[in-house]
Simulated scan of single mutants.
Amino acid sequence: MTATPSSPSVRPPLPPFTEESARAKVQAAEDAWNSRDPERVALAYTEDSAWRNRDRFLNGRAEIRAFLADKWERELEYRLRKELWAYTDNRISVRFEYEWHDASGQWWRSHGNEQWEFDAAGLMRRREASINDIPIKESDRRL
């Protein structure tokens, strides 16, 4: 059976990307991550997606889903902004920042960049993320 744009295994916009479609893909990712729903977010990745997130290496949707569930249990009131940095046929680079607080109430701002590679159905098959965290005062929040 061939995947169609309305099936869950296809995630428009599809490569090859234009500036407009790359921006739409970045916005869709930002919206999904801000939902803090591991199930929803994991559906954007191939079943065998490979991730590097900081110093962790994940393989497949199941590991991604578990990672995200754990992340959002620790990173409370998480709020993210992504910005398109560059794109090619099936790759997009973004810069991002997000804010969150831990269980003790300490607020953090996390900055980073990601490189994404997509399959023909618009699912992300590879994600490389470099992220740095800095403690902030609640009064210094931007998001």
Rank of each mutant, 00 (worst) to 15 (best):
Y45M: 13
Y45P: 13
T46C: 12
T46E: 09
T46Q: 12
E47F: 05
D48Y: 05
S49L: 09
S49D: 08
A50P: 03
A50T: 14
R52Q: 15
N53W: 10
N53F: 10
D55F: 07
L58A: 12
L58W: 11
N59C: 13
G60T: 14
G60L: 13
A62N: 14
A62P: 06
E63N: 07
R65W: 01
R65N: 09
R65T: 09
F67H: 15
F67K: 06
L68P: 05
A69Q: 13
A69I: 04
W72Q: 08
R74Y: 01
R74K: 13
L76E: 07
Y78Q: 06
Y78A: 05
R79K: 14
L80Y: 06
E83Q: 14
L84F: 01
W85P: 00
W85A: 12
W85G: 05
A86F: 04
Y87Q: 04
T88M: 04
D89E: 07
R91C: 10
R91L: 01
I92W: 01
V94K: 00
R95C: 04
F96W: 09
F96G: 01
F96T: 00
E97M: 03
Y98N: 12
Y98W: 10
Y98R: 08
Y98C: 14
E99M: 03
E99A: 08
E99V: 03
H101I: 03
H101E: 03
A103D: 07
Q106L: 04
Q106G: 07
W107Y: 15
R109L: 11
R109K: 14
